[in-house]
Simulated scan of single mutants.
Amino acid sequence: MLYGHPKIGKSTFCSQMDQPLFLATEPGLKALSVYEVQIPDWPTFLNACAEIAKGEHSFKTIAIDTIDNLWTACAEYVRDKMGIQHESDLGYGKGWTLVRNEFSRAIRKLSFLPYGLVMTSHAELSQVKTRTAEITKAVPTIPKTGRGFIIGLVDIILYAESMETNEGEVRVIRTKPSEKWEAGDRTKRLPAVLPLDYPTFSDAFHNQQDEGEDQQ
């Protein structure tokens, strides 16, 4: 998962991956030369997944851009199906559970297909209480219920941000967890900070993999 503030370059990063197909839940790809399927609602997403699963295509990477809007589409679908106005209308957390189950079932099924899967999300600053203080932390904007599932599913969580250096402002991705942002790399192949540039990311990932294989 790659998340960051709008217009920082998340879609451009994903467009440089191996033969990507964008499942676009919001506009914003017109400046990029990519293949996309517009996803205005949950049934359209399910239909797209079914077509992808057939394998009658040359795509190697599936990019959901953004996972935030896809969660919203799933929630709308479940509310319409159950005839309710809000998830809390069912009581005892049942509405939220139905949304999470519907969402996780489809995403998990997609993740099992033989393609790379990347999901983008926007970032928000959240107040988090620790035992000693309250800190401000950057987290994906997908609601907590969906966020917990996604974080448990993915191998790499990248936080994209702008930072000031002696040479001016640069855009970077954070790969390691911090009190200030949500991030993580279960593969343990990536340095803590990289330029927001997919070729550089790919080189770092695969070079570390090759070094590990050589040591074995």
Rank of each mutant, 00 (worst) to 15 (best):
S104I: 05
T120A: 05
R171I: 00
M163F: 03
R174P: 00
I157T: 15
K176S: 10
V154L: 13
T145D: 14
G168L: 01
I135M: 07
I142D: 02
L113A: 07
Y115T: 12
K129M: 15
A106C: 02
L117V: 12
V172P: 01
D185A: 07
G184E: 06
E182P: 00
S126P: 00
T145V: 15
Y115E: 11
S162Q: 14
T130A: 03
S104G: 03
K176N: 08
G148D: 13
E124G: 13
A123P: 02
I150L: 11
T132N: 12
G152E: 09
T141S: 14
F149L: 06
S126R: 15
L125T: 14
G116E: 05
L110A: 11
G184R: 06
D155N: 11
S178E: 06
L153F: 09
V128Y: 04
K137W: 01
I151M: 01
R186Y: 00
I107F: 03
I156C: 01
H122G: 08
G148Y: 01
K188W: 04
E134R: 09
A123W: 01
R189L: 15
L153T: 09
Y115H: 15
L158E: 05
T175A: 07
I173S: 00
S111K: 04
A183Y: 03
S162V: 13
T175C: 12
V139C: 06
R105L: 08
H122W: 06
I107G: 04
T165K: 00
G168A: 02
E169K: 10
V118K: 01
K176Q: 11
A183E: 10
A106I: 05
T145E: 13
K176F: 05
T165W: 00
A183K: 05
N166L: 07
W181G: 13
N166G: 15
L113H: 05
R147A: 08
V118N: 01
S178H: 09
L158S: 02
R147L: 10
V170C: 02
V172E: 02
D185T: 06
E179V: 09
G146W: 01
K144V: 11
V139P: 05
T136R: 09
A138Q: 10
E167I: 01
L158D: 04
T141N: 10
E164N: 08
E169R: 08
E182W: 02
A138M: 11
I142S: 04
I107C: 05
L125Y: 03
V172N: 01
E161Q: 03
Q127W: 04
V139A: 11
R105K: 15
W181A: 13
A133F: 00
Q127R: 09
M119H: 01
I151C: 00
K176I: 06
D155W: 01
K176T: 10
T136L: 13
R131H: 14
V154S: 10
V139K: 11
S111Y: 04
L117W: 01
V170W: 00
M163Y: 04
T175S: 15
A183T: 07
S126Q: 11
P140C: 15
E179T: 07
G116M: 03
T130W: 03
M163N: 03
F149V: 09
V118T: 10
R174E: 02
P143H: 10
V154Q: 09
